[in-house]
Amino acid sequence: MKKVNIFVDCHVFDGNFQGTTTYIKGLYSELIKDKHYRFFLGANDIASLESIFGTHDNVVYVRLKATNKFIRLLFEIPAIIKNHQIDYAHFQYVVPPIKKCKYILTIHDVLFLDFPEYFPITYRLKNRFLFGKSAKCSEIVLSVSEYSKKQLQKHFGIDTVTVTPNAVDPVFFEPYDKAAVQAQVRDKFKISKYFLFVSRWEPRKNHYRLLKAFVEKGYYTNYNMVFVGDKAIENKEYTVYFKSLPQEIKSKIFTFNKVSFNELLLFVRGADLSIYPSVAEGFGIPPLESLAAGVPTICSNTTAMSDFSFLNECLFNPLDIQDLKDKIEIGLNDSKINQKREAMAHKFSWDQAAEEFKRALY
């Protein structure tokens, strides 16, 4: 049986870890186990890529020379597809306009259409055109949640969307010494006893209300607040509120960006409480990662996160600060973390996502 050649645009691995890198890493770590397929993984730094996926007889690492996304999509990748006789090429959000094979496209969300108030108009107009056009010229369209699937069908009129749900990197489930990790965080970052929010900075992510709850409830007397994530869209409401705080409180608030995966793992494991207050998500991996690590976790109950039913009493309305405060108290005293962890692992796994992917191919 002739192997199916699949090219995967992995340029996101040349930057910092984000939702799309977690998705590609988890999905293809499972798919490469199937020797019916030959995978061509493309990025600028293929040594780093190989350290992530390993050496396999059905995996070829292809160095991308271009750092400009337009050159990569317009010229470089179409040439790679032709030279390697690729059957399918897999992209995130946007595909090359010059088509040399069948396309697989993952659109993780269209939140800019569902919640336009959180996105600049230029971003909305550009991506509505690019995502829609890319979806229409792709043979297979994937998304990561039932919520995102329904919204894709609604906005772009796509009949068939396959859900390949996100899951958690196995390393988050590995056992560890909590006290030792907290000592590492204390030594490296000068922080002890903290709440954690992992997310890039955008208004919809709701950093402002989380900070407000942290301050109004007086948690700063016993805890620090740690924000981990890169800047994306300016959050003026948060900035104004933060600047108004006395230095005593500001000194208990820490922000980190350009964080490596190992540093992220350290932050997650060392946290006393993980909080995910985002208003809107196409999926929402961070609360699953902290739960996998056995960290008390509370999470927003909106959009795709409404599917996280295993968190039950630790879900809250992200627009209701009082509800957030109440759930922080519940989270800090949660005695059912292990049951929630097991239920989450049963519901979301990369092998299930890989099976859905292969079904979509046929």
Rank of each mutant, 00 (worst) to 15 (best):
N5T: 10
N5S: 14
I6T: 04
F7V: 05
V8D: 06
V8R: 02
C10M: 15
C10Q: 03
H11M: 11
V12K: 11
F13H: 06
F13Y: 08
D14T: 04
G15V: 03
N16Q: 09
N16R: 06
F17I: 10
F17L: 09
Q18D: 08
Q18N: 15
G19K: 01
T21V: 06
T21G: 13
T21M: 04
T21F: 05
T22A: 11
T22M: 12
T22N: 13
Y23Q: 02
Y23I: 07
I24S: 00
I24F: 12
K25S: 11
K25C: 04
G26H: 04
L27Q: 06
L27N: 09
Y28M: 04
S29N: 10
L31S: 02
L31T: 07
L31H: 06
I32N: 00
I32G: 00
I32C: 03
K33L: 14
K33V: 08
D34E: 09
K35F: 02
H36Q: 14
H36M: 08
Y37C: 05
Y37W: 10
Y37M: 05
Y37P: 11
R38H: 14
R38P: 04
F39M: 04
F39N: 01
L41M: 10
G42F: 05
G42Y: 01
A43P: 08
A43H: 00
A43T: 03
A43R: 05
N44T: 11
I46P: 05
I46V: 14
S48A: 13
S48R: 15
L49R: 09
L49I: 02
S51F: 02
I52Q: 01
I52R: 04
F53S: 12
G54T: 07
G54I: 01
D57Q: 10
N58G: 05
V60A: 09
V60I: 14
V60C: 09
V60M: 05
V60T: 13
V60Q: 13
V62H: 01
V62Q: 12
V62G: 02
R63V: 07
L64E: 03
K65E: 09
K65C: 11
K65R: 14
F70S: 04
I71V: 15
R72Y: 08
R72L: 05
L74I: 15
F75R: 10
F75W: 12
F75H: 03
F75P: 00
I77S: 01
I77V: 14
I77A: 08
P78C: 07
P78I: 06
A79R: 15
A79W: 14
A79C: 12
I80F: 15
I81S: 07
I81P: 10
I81G: 10
K82M: 11
K82T: 14
H84I: 02
H84T: 06
H84G: 08
H84R: 08
H84N: 15
Q85K: 15
Q85W: 00
Q85M: 11
I86T: 04
Y88K: 12
A89Q: 05
H90S: 02
H90Y: 04
H90N: 07
H90M: 03
H90K: 04
F91N: 11
F91Y: 15
Q92N: 13
Q92C: 01
Q92W: 02
Y93E: 13
V94M: 11
V94K: 12
V94W: 09
V95M: 10
V95Y: 12
V95W: 06
V95Q: 04
P96Q: 10
P96I: 07
P96K: 00
P97C: 11
P97A: 12
I98Q: 11
I98S: 09
I98Y: 14
